[in-house]
Simulated assay, not measured.
Amino acid sequence: MSTDFQTARVALGARLRELRTEARLNGKELAARLGWQPSKISRIENGKQTPSLDDLEAWVAAVQRPDAIAELRGRLNGLESQYRSWRRQLSGGHRARQEIGATELSRTRQVRGLETDCIPGLFQTPDYARHMFLRLSDFRQSPVDTDEAARSRIKQQSALYEPGRKFRFLIWEGALHVRFCPDDVLAAQLDRLAGIIGLDTVDLGIIPLSAPLRLTPAHGFWIYDERLVIVETINAELWLDDTHNIALYQRAWDWLAGSSVHGSQAQQLIARTARSLSRS
Rank of each mutant, 00 (worst) to 15 (best):
R135E: 10
L16D: 11
A70Y: 03
A70E: 12
P212Q: 04
K28A: 15
E232Q: 09
T233Q: 12
L176F: 04
S210T: 10
Y83W: 12
K155G: 07
E148S: 05
A271V: 00
I270W: 03
S259P: 10
A236P: 05
R214F: 09
R135P: 03
E57K: 01
A96F: 05
I197Y: 08
E29I: 07
K28T: 15
G174C: 01
H94F: 09
H177W: 01
K40Y: 02
V231S: 06
A274L: 07
R112T: 03
D184M: 14
A31S: 14
A31Y: 09
R109D: 10
Q49R: 15
H262L: 00
D117L: 09
L72P: 03
I207N: 10
L19W: 14
Q64T: 00
R272D: 15
K28H: 10
S81F: 12
I44D: 10
S2Y: 07
E45L: 00
L16F: 08
T125E: 10
A149C: 05
Q267W: 00
R140I: 00
H262W: 12
L190E: 03
L269S: 01
S52G: 08
G205K: 06
I270G: 04
R275L: 02
E80A: 14
P51H: 04
F139Q: 15
A68R: 08
S52C: 02
L25H: 08
D4Q: 13
S42R: 08
L16G: 11
A257R: 09
L213S: 07
P51S: 05
R251H: 13
L72A: 05
S278F: 03
R153Q: 10
I230E: 15
G121E: 11
P126N: 13
P66A: 04
E29F: 06
R130E: 12
E104I: 11
L209N: 08
E148L: 10
R88W: 13
R24A: 11
D127F: 07
I230M: 11
L90D: 11
T108A: 06
D241V: 10
S142D: 09
T125Y: 08
S260D: 02
C118N: 14
A14S: 14
S280E: 13
E226I: 06
G220Q: 02
N77M: 10
F221E: 09
A68M: 11
Q267H: 00
N26K: 12
F169H: 05
V261N: 04
H177A: 09
L79D: 13
A31I: 07
I234Q: 13
Q49D: 00
Q98W: 01
E22Q: 15
D67C: 00
Y249E: 12
